[in-house]
Design a protein around this nucleic acid. Sequence first.
DNA 1: CGAAAGGCTCTTTTT
DNA 2: GAGCCTTTCG
Length: 713
Amino acid sequence: MDALADLNPAQKDAVETVEGPLLVLAGPGSGKTRVITHRIAYLVQTLGVSPRRIMAVTFTNKAAGEMRSRLQAMLGPRAAELTVGTFHAICARILRIEGAAIGLDSQFAIYDDDDQMNVIKQAMEQLGIDPKRFSPRALQSAIDAAKSQLVRVQDYAGRRNNYADEIIHRVYQRYQEILHRSQALDFDDLLVRTHYLFEEHPDILSKYQNRYVHVLIDEFQDTNIAQYSLARQMAGKYKNICVVGDPDQSIYSWRHADIRNILSFEKDYPNAKVVFLEQNYRSTQTIVEAAHHIILPNLQRKQYKLWTENDKGAPIVVAEAYNEQEEAQLVAQEIEKLMGQKEARLRDVAIMYRTNAQSRALEDTFIRYGTPYKIVGATRFYERREIKDAIAYLRLIYNPLDSVSLSRIINVPPRGIGQRTIDELSSMAQARGLPLYHALQAVADKSSAIPVASRTAAGLAGFYSMMEELRGESQKVSAVELLDLVLEKTGYKKYVQQGEDGEDRWDNIQELRNVAREKENLSDFLEGVALVSDLDNLDERSDTATLITLHQAKGLEFDVVFIVGMEEGVLPHVRSFDSPEQMEEERRLCYVGVTRARRRLYLVRAFRRSLGGMSGANPPSRFLKDIPSKLIAGYSSAKETAVTAMGVTPRPAAPLLVLPELKPGDSVKHGVFGEGVVVSAKPVKDDKEVVVAFPRIGVKKLLLSYAKLEKVR
DNA sequence: CGAAAGGCTCTTTTT
DNA sequence: GAGCCTTTCG
């Protein structure tokens, strides 16, 4: 194949500029992925660069997988020699190999957010810091912020300005001690430790610098300072570093991504070439233009304008629903209509929202409408209790020093080892500077006693010998076999199956088994599950609609996109109201969502919405006002027309609500349950509670102001 | 020790 | 509204 075929001049420029630093500013749908893959193909095929000498860093594992398979198609089996992955995955690999130089066990555990929070709470408890005065979350964020800027505990000492800093420093210090004793690294440690490994061991660094002649970084606008530093280290010798990004799509500042990296790049590499990709091939002209007007008010941006030669396409539909249930119905009905008209396949439809909590109403409604859907995130698979428990057993077997995993499962299923016993054990461990597991061992060996009942001591000994036995087995069997063994021997299988939602939870474990089956050994399996996200498992082949957060939607595209919750307080989120910077990020988030759409875009809002326990009315999102009305269908004249245009029965606003007079025996029609007969109706406050019998569905108690009831003569 | 019930807080986005 | 923590009871 010809790596330069079918590229526009700007894309071609980005592909051919292989020497020296290059910054590619790529708008949405401008063929960014094409540029990256073709650039690699050009290096390998045309210039004869060995794939071993190319590193490409992506934002997610999913993006890495896709890049790899695209390159496989272009280069064949040689693509396997490329280094493609996220910063985290690449660093983990390096640390497994080189960690010894910095006193790191090659079997280190990787702690996720949840584990991290456990350690922070533990550290706070040990230090006698009241979690009500200092929120563990805030401390976690402060520690993450420090790490993402490569600030270690010892570096933090000099930064203390006030009491809060003092607390952060103390927790940070204890936190690292606990991690160290557990031979565990958190996500940010993967980056920080690799950076300092390179800094302190130039011989190791030059090994990698010599190898990687070409370094590519995708989604550069969402990298943090630690990641950028790593990229610079890797590319330190040849300086053939190509970063690709779009400042307008920077939406991860809360994870300490630093948009200033783009400015730093131009400063650090004054001879860097800059290429703009501004032609959009993805969306209709209407969508591109709307996106442009949404992002325009941002002051902190590089001036470049997206344009397209595509058709004008359908107008954008802005619609208002009464509440989130109706919003969901509106979406479901419109999807039905589109399917009926063969406008799109279900897999080409996505519904996007600001917060995961919003998916609930959509899910409920889709189930009732029988609309097949898949949901990304929400209750994430790897955050489910049973999954975390099962993995904790395996992690403990792999690395017995992993105290977070040990504490997690020492009494799951219950084996008479209560909180008091665990506290006793961990204070003994703490006092002697021992890992928790060694304290357990000491008690089990009777070489040391802790003040607990003999029955409890026996429980500890039993648990210890069971774990030792499993550890012995782990050398001989595969990952799946070990998982099965664990589930059986520890009694976890029985425990799950007999517990609440036993069947569902057991199914989840079977799902985990499938993952384990594909892995060679325990180490591979654990590495895999530590760094995966739900998005990585998004199956695009099944013909179902996709429910997804705006953040996760970055990098994806769909024919039809619904963005729901277009309200002040939701998008933009309330938490951004007092910060202009955060408000700009909300705007970018909206921009990302809008530019995911190829052909049709729906912006939907609800007049009322319950957030948490409270229900309230929100004004329309300010972003809606920024879209020129000529791009919108039936909005400017009257709000209700848009709803009607979509074939959904409009509903008057709440204060004007006219409740139908209903009495027992009346026939009514419900938007979801269909036709039914009123059994009883009684007034409640300003409302009416109606009991309706629906054939096949059953008897439902409904509040007249909420239920969508129509009187059928 | 463990299960169940009640009270509290917060509630954005995720490698 | 839900998850997390604490309290209470068996």
